[in-house]
């Protein structure tokens, strides 16, 4: 499957807190290339058996940020609380989908300028609501707790950049699916599992339970990280188009990180350095059960946690290529 088509299929679907179809889209694609099962916590695992039982895990999360309905108001409006980190400043006039008894389209309210105070303060979630355009029977369709996601289906910007709301971390999922497809007909020294986990945006909870359910020796997580953005110091970001960001971190296993760079020597990649934990699922996977060797590869992304998230297809490909080479290079227990 073309990488662009995979990215569009994955970001054309939603998933937050059990609502949406992205999990099924992933399961369907993955099962074309390997036996695929769903864990009881919603994690999807595809397995490529190798010559040994030494298990290398590649992981990405398929949930996305969004909101939950906290109040149904008069006149077709609802209030929401955030599920995941969201910048309320971007919300006014942003389109959303509410997963009620049916999918309801809506838009975040804004108050016109003449009703605002002189000092230019940013809106926060408590002074915003969602306009559903429904004039009656709202409570029949929408209930407290219903999930809400940004309504920003994928589009191309230029010929290498995709913009969609859920690229964090469907871009990672797409890289995993590309690696799965390309490794599925290869002879592997180790068993490679691909985990698509839920609930990262709620504090890496899906990775905790899914990793527990898999016997594994080693894991490399794939997430998005900050791409170069005006107003952000360059040392905090990777370059868009600069390839996979391979992470150096004291919380990661040095030999795995070295192996990832070794696997990248003919690829365009860039280093990323974090001083402590990485803020991704690998932080919890690495301390699963009796401990797991760990690495992290990221796709540079702009405008994280907004409907304006963008990634470069070439960067997603670079991440996938790092994973493919790493798996092919792997000699079993040799990585210390």
């Amino acid at each position: 499957m073309e990488l662009k088509d995979t990215l569009f299929a994955l970001t054309g679907a939603d998933f937050l807190g059990g609502s949406g179809d992205a999990k099924n889209v992933i399961k369907e694609i993955a099962s074309q290339y390997a036996p695929t099962e769903e864990l009881k916590d919603g994690g999807i695992v595809a397995t490529l058996k190798g010559k040994t039982d030494y298990t290398l895990l590649f992981e990405a999360h398929y949930d996305q940020i969004g909101f939950v309905v906290t109040e149904v108001l008069e006149g077709g409006f609802v209030r929401v609380g955030n599920a995941g980190g969201i910048d309320p400043r971007i919300l006014p006039s942003t389109r959303v989908k509410i997963y009620g008894k049916e999918v309801v389209k809506g838009v975040f309210t804004s108050v016109p300028p003449h009703l605002k105070k002189e000092d230019e303060t940013a809106p926060d979630l408590s002074c915003l609501s969602i306009d559903t355009g429904l004039t009656d029977n709202v409570s029949d369709i929408i209930s407290l707790g219903d999930r809400v996601v940004f309504d920003a289906p994928p589009v191309m910007l230029g010929n290498d950049t995709v913009n969609a709301a859920s690229l964090d971390d469907r871009a990672g999922c797409a890289a995993l699916l590309w690696a799965l497809e390309n490794l599925s007909d290869k002879e592997l020294a180790v068993t490679v599992k691909f985990l698509f986990a839920d609930k990262e945006e709620l504090g890496m909870r899906g990775a905790v339970t899914s990793a527990f359910n898999i016997e594994l020796d080693e894991a490399v997580a794939v997430d998005v990280s900050f791409g170069d953005t005006p107003g952000v110091p360059s040392y905090q970001t990777g370059k868009m188009g600069g390839g996979a960001m391979i992470c150096h971190s004291p919380a990661l296993t040095k030999s795995v990180v070295d192996g990832l760079f070794e696997a990248s020597k003919d690829l365009v990649v860039q280093p990323e350095v974090t001083g402590g934990r990485t803020g991704t699922d690998i932080d919890v996977i690495s301390i699963s059960r009796g401990g797991v060797k760990s690495g992290l590869v990221s796709v540079p992304q702009r405008n994280m946690h907004t409907p304006a998230e963008t990634v470069r297809i070439s960067d997603v490909k670079s991440v996938a290529d790092v994973l493919i080479n790493y798996a092919l290079n792997h000699k079993g227990g040799a990585v210390k």
Binding site: S93, T229, G231
Partner: peptide, 22 residues
């Protein structure tokens, strides 16, 4: 912020903002 624009000759772009995490 975060909205999509289409230009006269057809290019599409998004208004960037600093990630809330930073």
């Amino acid at each position: 912020l975060g909205k999509r624009f289409v230009f006269e000759k057809g290019a599409v772009g998004v208004v960037c903002s600093k990630p809330t995490h930073l």
